[in-house]
C-alpha cells in the first residue's frame, strides 16, 4: 500500500488545486477540502507505513509491543483534520455571507464589486470631509 499512497496523495492534491483555482467559491471550497485531505495523506505516508497495530500500550505493560504504528504523524494529522474543519466552516460562512451581501460568489465579479464598494467608500468619506 505504501507504494500507491504517494500517487493517491498527489492525485488528490492536483485535483484540489485545480478546483481551488475555479472562480466559483463553492468549487474553491471543495478544493480546500481535497487539499487538506491530500496533505494529511502525505504526512501519513511520510511517517512510514509498516503495520496494522495501533500505537497502544497493553494493560500491565509500560511500553507498547513492537511492531506498532508510528504515533507521531497520527498526532499531527489529528490536529490538522480538526483545524482543517475549522477553516472549512469559516470559508463556507464567508461564501454564504458574500452571497447574501453581494449577490454573487463569482470571484471575477466579486473583484469588480469590491472596486465599486471601495470607490463608494472613498466617495462617502470625501463627501463627509466637505
Amino acid at each position: 500500500m505504501d507504494t500507491i499512497l504517494p500517487i493517491l496523495a498527489g492525485a488528490i492534491f492536483a485535483s484540489g488545486i485545480y478546483l481551488l483555482l475555479r472562480k466559483g467559491l463553492i468549487l474553491t471550497i471543495i478544493g480546500i477540502i481535497l487539499i487538506s485531505n491530500s496533505v494529511n495523506l502525505a504526512l501519513f505516508s511520510l511517517g512510514r507505513i509498516s503495520t496494522e497495530n495501533p500505537p497502544l500500550i497493553a494493560a500491565g505493560s509500560a511500553i507498547p509491543e513492537a511492531p506498532f504504528a508510528n504515533p507521531l504523524p497520527q498526532a499531527l494529522i489529528l490536529t490538522a483534520i480538526v483545524i482543517g474543519f475549522g477553516l472549512l466552516a469559516f470559508a463556507l460562512a464567508m461564501a454564504y455571507r458574500s452571497y447574501k451581501e453581494l449577490g454573487t460568489i463569482d470571484q471575477d465579479s466579486l473583484l469588480e464589486d469590491a472596486e465599486d464598494t471601495s470607490a463608494a467608500i472613498i466617495n462617502k468619506t470625501e463627501n463627509k470631509e466637505d
Binding site: I29, T51, E52, I81, G84
Partner: peptide, 26 residues
C-alpha cells in the same frame, strides 16, 4: 479506511466524524 488499515484508529474515527459534518455543512 486507509488510516484504519494502518493502525490509526483515532484518525479514522476523527476523519469519519469530520467528513460527515463537512458534507452536511457544505
Amino acid at each position: 479506511l486507509i488510516y484504519l488499515m494502518h493502525g490509526a484508529a483515532d484518525l479514522a474515527m476523527t476523519q469519519v466524524l469530520v467528513e460527515t459534518l463537512t458534507v452536511i455543512l457544505v
